[in-house]
Amino acid sequence: MAINLKEMSARPELLVGGHRSCAGCAAPAILRQALHVAGPDTVVGFATGCMEVSTTIYPYTAWRVPYIHCAFENCAATVSGVEAAYRVLQRKGRIPADKKINFIAFGGDGASYDIGFQSLSGAMERGHRMLYVCYDNNAYMNTGTQRSSATPRGAMTNTSPNGSIISGKQQSRKDLTACVLAHNIPYVAQASVSNPIDFMRKVARALEIDGPSFINILQPCHRGWGCKPEDSIELARLAVETRWWPLYEVDHGRWKVNNKPKTVVPVVDWFRIQARFKHMVAGDRDGILAWHQEQVDKAWTELLEKEEKSQ
């Protein structure tokens, strides 16, 4: 599906203004982009988190599509129930046979990598027709920036501060995209808020699939990462250009790297503009910067190999 912004802009907004996310938080843009592709016949499920809280403060809702939130750790299970209801009600003739509804579950990295990992895994394994979108901002941001399993090694958060003995998060991140891919589902992709056309094309592809699909989209949190609000998108772009967050998709086993940066930008250039890495850039006492660059280079080589082998 070719993404045509001009055509899209003529259609009604399905996530309207008046929600209360922080100024400069790009996460609502992700939601808008997904809905511009999915259209009004879409049910959105949300895990507890920044977007859930800020878009639905009673009696105000920013949503103009059906929206359901239950709790933090169960968005995928909740949407499983909605999707199962759709199937049976359609079978029983209570929903017209030709009425297709998209099901999109959204969760942050806390909800997807951590507390809702089991629920996500279960829903993917059961094969519900559902697109799960994780908007990964690398920490628990709704509760005030605590480390999650998506937080990069070395990064400062309020539960992994830069102490005099222990400096930042000690562990490396979980590769959730790979974890979900291991469920052998038809479509898995990584996207970035800096590349909206790429993300929207991926949403379109995922929604074509009669089964589960997953997109992990990087979404910088300027509060948690420590940068200016207007730089959110720029930060995501640099994550892609340093190859720290490669854009790729695996469509029925076929790997494709969607963005191959022509010039290699060192990871430290990305770290440098974020307060959460300030201590590492100032003096990398644990060698974490070098470790990150090694990891990025290794993962990039492996990614290209997977792409080549799967053709």
Partner: peptide, 8 residues
């Protein structure tokens, strides 16, 4: 337009 978080 596509990046505006507030549909503004």
């Amino acid at each position: 337009w596509i990046l505006c978080p507030d549909s503004a």
